[in-house]
Design a protein around this nucleic acid. Structure first.
Length: 585
RNA sequence: CGGGGUGUAGCUUAGCCUGGUAGAGCGCCUGGUUUGGGACCAGGAGGUCGCAGGUUCGAAUCCUGUCGCCCCGACCA
């Protein structure tokens, strides 16, 4: 039981100007966090209580699923990362932590980085500690701070530079075991999000820089999310847009027959799909080939999609490059011989095909018969271009971004898309890290094998904010019982009145005995201020004790998520409150 | 990193275009009146106008640079 006057809850009437979204404003206004710098936040006493509750639930579910808690350093020797499989991709988000404070690290001084995640730490550890199949499987986790130099931190705790994450790493003897571990984590995640009161859906996801064979993200639908979730209401299909496919290309598609030879025509000044759609050319975007040039591991390659489609850059990961980026105009001219706007991949028109790492075409371009594309000569295009006959394609793949309304790949019904916040991610990693670090074990036939790994993250601090984003009204936060910083608020309207104070403390004690965390608002403030603050900080159950009510022999009981308030007789108040608390626990 | 914005008291901000004493509301302190949904009156404290140059008799205001922060894009739990 805490007295408000002896605790610290600095509420604000107005939101700081840099808070954009509801949950960020409420984090600030309810005194849960304060900003130190971009993406860096102090957890204030009230906010820390929520973090502790979320962490405790996470810990319980992880333990229940058989994971084992440990704690790893967050200052990492850079060698661990240099030896790992993703140094090139990961280094740009890592903070350096040189031990030389003046920044003048001598050549022989060790170099450190702040840990953005811990595969590079746990895998070498397991390599030295576990060598026998008898010690497998194992799943280690920690709940700790992570450091990522996000290029653009935003929305408070949603995307911070320093944040709290639960990360778990499973090690199995074989693929079947790894899938079991993966399923166990999915079960734990479902239980966790249900308990903290967040409606999270799991969706198929791109594995990104983590690598690995498959993964699911846990998404909280919200307009302010950074991701797009593609889903179908009829089938169970749901996926991150980066990964999502649609049934836009029929399986039995027959390629269109050419109507004539390819033909060059002048298109002075035309450098966009839209310009070619307009008169006098009038070529619909879905009849144009869009030719884009990327550079993958220092070698240019071409991606072709329909003019009406967008390339989903994450999908280019399937091509096997470690790093890739859009090519610059100069690089494009060097290889294709023309500037962007007149590019194509028709056989014989590419200036220097030997420099290319490949020409990759999206399946959907097969829907185009006798289309139009750039001639690799500024100001000229080619018409009557046909996929099979004319384009020098290395291979086909899925590279386009799905749009709402396209047919679901499972059932054909129209797909929908909505924004969402990623709060958790499970990856089946395979042997990418264990092979790199030599984390092998000996089986019962004296054979050595790399361990099969999985990794599993939950953004603890982000989950806290996602709860607020999903559960608030115009007056403030509405905490679910399970993660509320306090569950019962005794609103003592007349703290100078000894009898009323006594009643408040007794009722608070009764609620506490029944299992609730209790806060008593004993401040010398006017009632209006107390009620406004109560709504703002969102404590689920409010008990109001005031001189007026006591004269009638009643106190008031009000749930934060309900409109109406109930007067209860003082004589029965302790029992009624205890029952209310027990009904929630 | 590219594009756009912004920086004035603890918070929200006016003033800037058109240079001339830095203003308000909230919050804070003192006293009084109040007391069931962010009270009222009186008094008070608090600002090197992000920083550094420049133009000018004179700069919060104009110019240049720089830093922080916010928004849009790529990245992520």
């Amino acid at each position: 039981m805490k007295l408000w006057s002896q605790f610290f809850i600095p509420t604000l009437k107005e939101s700081p100007a840099d808070a954009e979204i509801a949950s960020h404003k409420l984090l600030m206004r309810a005194g849960l966090v304060r900003k130190l710098g971009g993406g860096l936040y102090t957890y204030m006493p009230l906010g820390l209580r929520v973090i502790h509750k979320v962490s405790a639930i996470c810990r319980e579910e992880m333990d229940k699923a058989g994971a084992i808690e440990l704690w790893m350093p967050h200052v990492h020797p850079v060698e661990n990362w240099q030896q790992g499989p993703r140094w090139a991709a990961a280094r740009e988000i890592m903070f350096r932590a040189d031990h030389a404070g003046d920044g003048k690290r001598a050549p022989r001084d060790p170099e450190f980085v702040l840990g953005p995640t811990h595969e590079e730490i746990i895998t070498p550890l397991v390599k030295t500690e576990i060598t026998s199949y008898r010690d497998l499987p194992k799943n280690f986790y920690q709940i700790a701070t992570k450091f990522r130099n996000e290029i653009r931190p935003r929305y408070g705790l949603m995307r911070a530079r320093e944040f709290i994450m639960k990360d778990a790493y499973s090690f199995d003897a074989d693929d079947a075991g790894a899938i079991k571990s993966y399923q166990a984590m999915k079960g734990a995640y479902d239980a966790f999000f249900a308990r903290v009161g967040v409606k999270a859906i799991s969706v198929e996801a791109d594995t990104g820089v983590m690598g690995g064979s498959f993964s699911h993200e846990y998404m909280v639908p919200a307009e302010v999310g950074d991701d797009d979730v593609v889903y179908c209401e009829d089938s169970s299909y749901s996926a991150n847009r980066e990964k999502a496919t649609s049934g836009i290309v029929p399986a039995d598609l027959a390629d269109a027959a050419p109507v004539g030879d390819t033909e060059k025509f002048a298109t002075p000044g035309v450098v966009t799909i839209a310009a070619l759609e307009a008169a006098p050319y009038s070529v619909p975007a879905d009849r144009q080939f869009k030719t884009l040039v990327f550079v993958g591991d220092d070698k240019p390659f071409i991606v072709i999609v329909r003019g009406c489609d967008d390339v989903e850059e994450a999908k280019l990961g399937s091509l096997g490059f470690k790093l890739w980026r859009p090519a610059t105009a100069d690089e494009i001219v060097e290889v294709l011989g023309a500037k962007p706007g007149s590019l194509g991949a028709v056989k014989g028109t590419i200036k220097d095909p030997s420099k290319l790492g490949g020409i990759f075409a999206d399946h959907a371009i097969r829907l185009i018969g006798n289309g139009t594309t750039g001639a690799n000569e500024d100001g000229f295009h080619l018409r009557n271009v046909n996929v099979k006959r004319d384009l020098a394609i290395t291979s086909f793949g899925d590279f386009r971004s799905v749009r709402a309304g396209e047919p679901c790949p499972k059932c054909g019904q129209p797909l929908k898309i909505r924004r969402a916040i990623e709060v958790g991610h499970v990856f089946k990693l395979g042997t990418k890290y264990s092979e790199k670090f030599g984390a092998v074990y000996t089986d019962d036939k004296k054979q050595m094998h790399p361990m099969v790994m999985g990794c599993y993250g939950i953004g603890i601090s982000r989950t806290m904010q996602a709860v607020i984003e999903q559960s608030h009204d115009a007056d403030g936060i509405i905490w679910p019982w399970s993660v509320a910083p306090f569950q019962v608020l005794v609103c003592l309207l007349d703290p100078q009145d000894a009898a009323a104070s006594e009643v408040a403390k007794n009722l608070g004690a009764a609620a506490e005995k029944a299992g609730a965390d209790v806060l008593i608002d004993d401040r010398a403030e006017r009632p209006g201020v107390k009620f406004k603050d109560a709504d703002l900080i969102g404590i689920p159950l409010r008990i109001t004790v005031g001189g007026k009510g006591l004269k009638e022999g009643v106190v008031e009981l009000k749930w934060r998520d309900q409109k109406e308030m109930k007067k209860i007789p003082l004589a029965e108040a302790e029992a009624i409150i205890a029952d209310a608390v027990k009904s929630k626990a």
